[in-house]
Nucleic acid binder design. Structure first.
Length: 291
DNA sequence: CCGCGGGCCTGAGAGC
DNA sequence: TGCTCTCAGGCCCGCG
């Protein structure tokens, strides 16, 4: 499900109940996620304290008192839900939630903060893995990741360098986590539209001298759309929820994603949003203002 | 090295 | 109602 804004929303939901808290009990109902959890998974967590909960691209990273890092990925359909053992009911706005199928609550953390944190993942493309902190920069999952798009190190020059000589489309380049880490299908489409760049354009065209303004617009668009989406709690299409079960709101601000046939929202553009398939995935774009 | 297509899973929604 | 088909926001791997 989740791209960077959704993962960051989840991180912010988990941080208050995980950071500084200890794993009292960990229950792995089934260990066959994308990869096996390992038989001693629960035992390696129990008794350990979470010293910090961070994020790298679409990965959540829980720094443990054992010197290990719990690396977690939500895959396509993973979600975390926080319930409290005692204390008042969540205040929360009214929301209607289709009941999560408890059969897919694969891993449950009982924390010393009083929180019960359940990881639910119907498609089981998600993963959890314990990695010694000292080996984190050699970890294959994280090693090849490109820059964090919201960091200062991600700028027009960096993006241009990563796109230089690339014969693939801009859509494919931005979806490549080695070029920039954290974008997925939705935010690639949205960023390209905001930057008025065609998803079909050769990636290398923004790496030339003449392409520099395009690279700058694209970087600005990526940062803006991600920041807005995080502020909205992410986009809730099928699976994404905040950790309290509330919906994210950013799906209401999509300009192109899943809007085929609708008018292009760019001022004075009379184009119509179209859907096409690139690399087996849907791309939504405006053929008039995106060049 | 690079780019492309297939596969991993389940559930929702459309069409018949 | 129920069946079948298609599609879904990610990632890894093998092929050419």
């Amino acid at each position: 499900m989740p791209e960077l804004p959704e993962v960051e929303t989840v991180r912010r939901g988990l941080q208050p109940v995980m950071e500084g808290a200890r794993f009292l009990k960990v229950i792995a109902h089934r260990g066959d996620l994308r990869w096996p959890l390992g038989q001693d998974f629960a035992a390696r967590l129990e008794g350990k304290t979470v010293e910090g909960l961070g994020r790298r691209a679409k990965y959540l990273l829980a720094d443990l008192s054992s010197g290990e890092v719990l690396v977690m990925h939500l895959g396509m359909s993973g979600s975390f839900r926080v319930a409290h053992r005692r204390g008042k009911a969540m205040p929360g706005r009214y929301y209607h939630e289709r009941a999560r199928n408890a059969a897919h609550d694969h891993v449950v953390f009982h924390m010393s903060s009083g929180a019960r944190i359940s990881f639910n993942d119907p498609r089981r493309f998600g993963m959890m893995k314990l990695v010694p902190r000292a080996e984190l920069d050699r970890e294959p999952l994280l090693r090849a990741l490109g820059p964090e798009p919201l960091g200062n190190e991600f700028d027009a020059a960096t993006l241009a360098r990563a796109c230089k000589g690339k014969k693939t489309s801009l859509k494919a380049a931005l979806s490549d986590q080695r070029v920039v880490a954290g974008l997925g299908n939705i935010y690639v489409c949205e960023a390209l539209h905001r930057a008025r760049l065609s998803p079909k354009r050769r990636a290398s065209t923004i790496a030339t001298k003449a392409g520099a303004p395009n690279a700058q617009r694209l970087v600005d668009a990526i940062k803006a759309v991600l920041a807005e989406a995080i502020a909205a709690g992410g986009s809730s299409l099928r699976d994404h929820r905040r950790t309290d079960g509330e919906l994210g709101d950013f799906q209401h601000n999509f300009r192109v994603y899943d809007r085929a046939g609708k008018p292009c929202p760019t001022p004075r553009c009379n184009g119509t949003i179209r859907r096409m398939v690139q690399g087996g995935r849907s791309t939504f774009f405006c053929p008039v203002c995106q060049r």
